[in-house]
Computed example of a mutant assay.
Amino acid sequence: MGTMRALLSGYYGKGNGGDEALLATLLQMLPSHVTPVVLSGNPEETSDRYHVEAHNRMAILPVVQALRSCDALIWGGGSLIQDVTSTLSPFYYGGLMALAQTMGLKTIAWAQGIGPLLRPPTRWLARQNFAGCQAISVRDRVSAALLSEWHIPHILAPDPVWALQSQPVPGLWDLPAPRVAVTLRSHPQLTETRLANLTRALVDFQTATQAFILLLPFQKSEDLAIAQAIHPHLPDVSKILCLEDPQILKGVFRGVEMAIGMRLHSLIMAAAEGCRCFALSYDPKINRLMEELGMPGWDLANLPDDANLIGKTWIEHYANGDPLSSEQIQSLVDRALIHRELLSQSLIQ
């Protein structure tokens, strides 16, 4: 049992594979003397999966009691501080951080992807919150530039999920090879017309490559219906894989030749396991990853109307595209471990 207690706050326990991967990595990186206490949308599930103390993130009294019982608050990972997908999200996380700072807890912003921040009140709150942190790490250059503009010290390192240890997937090697993973999510930019074009392109791609298509919902509530809509168009040559454990989810990409994805962490996991990747971006964070890795892809808003062109582009990348080299992957993993060093240096007994 650790001698220091740290409250971990993020989008945990909401069934999102990327956020669960961030939590799993954070728990993997915590110093051994620190006992984690997790705020979760599903505390029972979080407690069972990770063997940690967990509390309902929206229950005010348990949250305040958890804060009182802890020495530190870690704002854990990802695009928590943005006001595009939710106007309430930055106020929830910002209010929690402000409360922790008022109560005298050591506060750490870990592996943040900041923004977009379009509204002056959320921008002001974010600046106050980050200024009050003892240590900050960010995962992209745009977030680093914003903190530099605010004169707030920070470190920049690749997303920590690069360093998440993957686990083998039971039964994966029994499925036909070669395999290609597809991760699409519900989003206003993924219109019915665009989904129909992507589906037609996927059918053409499968016919040309004879690949077995793995449809991977990263968040069932957002992704499963789309996977179920595509699956009947690829009978006998596709399978929907619903996996809850983030380490096993990352392990899928060990057995995959190429990944086509909207989800940021599907692309990071795939690239980390040596897959060719093709991005479909709905958010600046995907564009940042594409830019940093030289990853091909389209913004959904600019997706070609011609399914034939989409399919040909994927076939070309499947045949001739290059995954990251083992040296590039190792460099990204090594640099992602800077997030672990930040925790070790900040959470001193």
Score class of each variant (00 low, 15 high):
170 P>R: 15
196 A>I: 00
168 P>D: 12
201 A>Y: 08
198 L>T: 01
176 P>L: 15
173 W>Q: 12
166 S>R: 15
177 A>Q: 12
169 V>A: 01
205 F>I: 00
199 T>S: 15
187 H>R: 10
189 Q>E: 13
174 D>H: 14
179 R>S: 02
153 P>L: 12
179 R>K: 14
186 S>T: 06
192 E>A: 15
196 A>T: 05
186 S>Q: 14
179 R>H: 06
201 A>S: 13
180 V>D: 07
189 Q>W: 12
157 A>H: 10
193 T>S: 12
185 R>H: 00
156 L>G: 05
185 R>N: 02
176 P>D: 11
156 L>V: 05
169 V>T: 07
207 T>D: 09
154 H>K: 11
185 R>P: 00
201 A>T: 04
164 L>I: 04
181 A>L: 08
157 A>S: 12
211 A>W: 13
187 H>G: 02
205 F>T: 03
174 D>V: 00
210 Q>W: 05
164 L>S: 08
188 P>I: 04
160 P>K: 13
200 R>C: 05
189 Q>V: 03
196 A>K: 13
185 R>K: 11
152 I>N: 08
203 V>L: 09
163 A>I: 03
162 W>N: 12
173 W>L: 09
164 L>Q: 09
204 D>N: 14
164 L>E: 02
191 T>E: 02
200 R>K: 13
163 A>P: 07
190 L>G: 08
169 V>M: 09
206 Q>G: 07
204 D>H: 14
156 L>H: 14
192 E>Q: 15
207 T>L: 11
203 V>S: 08
165 Q>T: 08
161 V>M: 07
159 D>F: 12
189 Q>F: 11
184 L>I: 04
199 T>C: 08
171 G>T: 08
162 W>Q: 07
179 R>C: 04
205 F>C: 08
175 L>D: 00
195 L>G: 01
171 G>V: 02
183 T>H: 13
204 D>F: 05
195 L>Q: 01
186 S>V: 00
192 E>G: 14
158 P>W: 10
161 V>W: 01
188 P>N: 13
169 V>C: 14
180 V>C: 15
196 A>R: 13
188 P>W: 12
160 P>S: 09
209 T>C: 05
209 T>V: 06
155 I>E: 09
165 Q>N: 11
174 D>N: 15
196 A>F: 02
160 P>G: 08
210 Q>E: 09
205 F>M: 08
204 D>V: 00
208 A>Y: 09
195 L>M: 02
187 H>M: 03
159 D>I: 10
207 T>R: 15
169 V>K: 02
163 A>Q: 10
168 P>W: 13
206 Q>Y: 10
194 R>N: 03
161 V>K: 04
159 D>L: 14
183 T>G: 15
177 A>W: 00
195 L>E: 01
201 A>G: 15
211 A>R: 07
209 T>N: 05
195 L>F: 01
154 H>T: 00
187 H>Y: 10
189 Q>D: 14
183 T>Q: 10
156 L>M: 11
197 N>R: 15
